[in-house]
Structure formats: structure tokens, C-alpha cells
């Protein structure tokens, strides 16, 4: 797994590449905890290059989102597709997160 971050005005765009599973989920959580500690509240997670997500990955996603929500923040997901989308559909996660087809539309929705 690889995580890249970029700042678009007030929103932090986090691009996750590779696999989000039991091994990498703690790394994902640590990264987000650091960003939250830096005062970031608005996040768009770009999952275009995420090839696999396990239940542990879902838990990490959910735990960070809950923490951000506690700080009056918001996590939006962008570019979910393939097997990851299937997992989201089966587990009902699709109804929990705001999801967008692109980072741009997510940005528009969040800032607009």
C-alpha cells in the first residue's frame, strides 16, 4: 500500500494505492491520525488505485471517518470501482460514505 496526500484549498486529498488489508490498515490509520493531529478535517479519499480491501481495511476506513466526524469533519470517497465496489455494496458501506465518481466532483460537492 502507498498513500499520497495533496492539499486542495481546505481539503486534503488522500490517494490510496495497492491493498488495504489487515497488514496495511494500521499504517492507514496512523497516517490519518497524523493528518487529524495537524488539524485537517476535510478529506477526500481517492480509491481509484485501490485493488483490494479486506474487512480490516473497512474497519480502518470506518474508524478514521468516525474520528474525523467527531472533529466536525467529513470523509468523502472518490473513484470506487471493481472488486472494492462489490465489497462496499455487500457490506453496506456504500450507504455510509458520500461517494463520488471523481476527485473533482467530490471537491465540488464538498466545497460547494
Amino acid at each position: 500500500m502507498n498513500i499520497e496526500t495533496s492539499k486542495e484549498s481546505t481539503t486534503m486529498v488522500v490517494k490510496v494505492t495497492g491493498r488495504l488489508d489487515a497488514v496495511t490498515s494500521s499504517e492507514y490509520e496512523q497516517k490519518f491520525n497524523a493528518l487529524i493531529a495537524d488539524g485537517e478535517t476535510m478529506f477526500i479519499v481517492d480509491l481509484e488505485n485501490l485493488v483490494y480491501i479486506s474487512s480490516a481495511g473497512l474497519r480502518a476506513l470506518l474508524a478514521t471517518a468516525k474520528r474525523i466526524k467527531g472533529k466536525k469533519g467529513l470523509v468523502s470517497l472518490a473513484n470506487i470501482g471493481g472488486s472494492v465496489k462489490e465489497v462496499f455494496d455487500i457490506s453496506g458501506f456504500g450507504s455510509i460514505f458520500p461517494m463520488y465518481n471523481s476527485v473533482a466532483s467530490a471537491l465540488t460537492a464538498v466545497t460547494g
Binding site: L58, R59, L62, K66, D89, I90, S91, G92, F93, G94, S95, I96
Partner: peptide
């Protein structure tokens, strides 16, 4: 129907 996972969010 999918239904949300059990545990994290109340009142699902």
C-alpha cells in the same frame, strides 16, 4: 439487500 455491518453505527 446489503444492510450495513453490525457494530459501528447505532440505529442502522
Amino acid at each position: 439487500k446489503a444492510g450495513f455491518v453490525l457494530g459501528p453505527i447505532a440505529d442502522s
